[in-house]
Design a protein around this nucleic acid. Structure first.
Lengths: 208, 208
DNA sequence: TAGATTGTTAATCGATTAACAATC
DNA sequence: TAGATTGTTAATCGATTAACAATC
């Protein structure tokens, strides 16, 4: 019998970034303390669940007082491995790629788009954000050299799986996939999906 | 005692668009039939769960044979209210707004960005996609006139809640929110969120 | 001290899975 | 008929919630 390491449920992990985001807004309001009740009001997640989620990782609050906002933020950043900034590789320099590079929301939240690839010769060599656009052919070399572990796929669906395979063989361990396909990846690789149509279709079910 | 209408769990509704997307790819391969096992292989959702999910809405397959791809697609489109195309209002004509308008992925999947708003006088009056960019001040009038029910928020976080409130008072019932804040909305309004950083932070937890 | 709020336990609730009769 | 696969039931598994002792 091997030891059964108590794993924190993935659904709990998925809520931690929401807690962190809410805490960041509270900190901007120059607040010092908060409570599971206040976080609940802001996030629509029950106070009991917030306390239970946090309890998987330690004791971060004080009875009668609540949570110190900066302290809890720091702890969540540590738990989520956001103490240092992750360099991100972006594949796809189309409209979406441009929007992502010019998006200010990565800064201060743990990520920086450090290198961009595309396969279009018209785009290769041009500057995009802090990076030049490189040929996808150069992906394995450059990604390995830079030691990049986090990626964003913003290419058409037809190219996405090939790109994912190349990213993985280049050492990438996390993929944020904007292409509307499910990727098949080995267990050590994390994948998250963003497909706006999936979200819209989920809502229209509830419309008369 | 009021009658307890058996409600289909929201988590089930959330998977239906994935089934529909997979079926669309199968149809493009000119296939006629599929099975819960094949959908499982493509989606990473168990065959039992797929069958159970579908059983909430009727019997769409044949024992020993499986599911007719076009028939099941049609049924899912009907269930999700995608038989007709929804006109969508986009608020925010920045980089993200441009990317969304030029994104080809809405067509044929039930949505069309029919009107765009921004508050920047430099942008108002210019063309974006099939719409002119209108002043956000005109939102209530135009949205009510057009009878639009579905929206996308692509403005900075600081403006997002005001925009959401205006959308709701204009009759919108579904909001896809790209701003990194949780919205507080009445129960008859659906909200879905897209924040790439949340997805990235969820993955880095698993990276050494 | 009185009031507030945590961390945790146990109960409840809900979702997933396994298994199989029905049947194409 | 033999093989395949659905739809459904019951069992299992896991997540959420309620409640409260501990304590700031």
């Amino acid at each position: 019998m091997t030891s059964t390491t108590k794993v924190v449920p993935d659904i709990v992990i998925g809520r931690l970034p929401l807690y962190l985001r809410a805490l960041t807004y509270l900190a901007e309001e120059s607040r010092e303390l908060t409570s599971s009740q206040e976080l609940s009001d802001r996030l629509g997640i029950s106070p009991a669940q917030i306390r239970k989620d946090l309890s998987h990782f330690g004791e971060f609050g004080k009875q009668g007082t609540g949570y110190n906002i900066l302290f809890l933020s720091q702890q969540l950043q540590r738990i989520l491995h956001l103490a240092e900034e992750w360099e991100v590789v972006l594949v796809g320099a189309g409209d979406l790629g441009h929007a992502l590079v010019h998006y200010g929301g990565f800064e201060g939240r743990g990520f920086r788009i450090a290198v961009v690839f595309d396969r279009d010769p018209q785009k290769i060599g041009k500057k995009l954000g802090e990076s030049e656009i490189f040929d996808v052919e150069a992906m394995p070399t450059i990604i390995k050299d830079m030691g990049i572990k986090v990626s964003i796929i913003a290419v058409p669906a037809s190219d996405a799986h090939t790109v994912a395979d190349t990213l993985i063989e280049s050492g990438v361990r996390a993929i944020l996939n904007y292409a509307p396909i499910t990727l098949s990846v080995p267990p050590h690789v994390q994948v998250q999906y963003i497909d706006p149509v999936i979200h819209l279709q989920r809502m229209t079910y509830y419309l008369a």
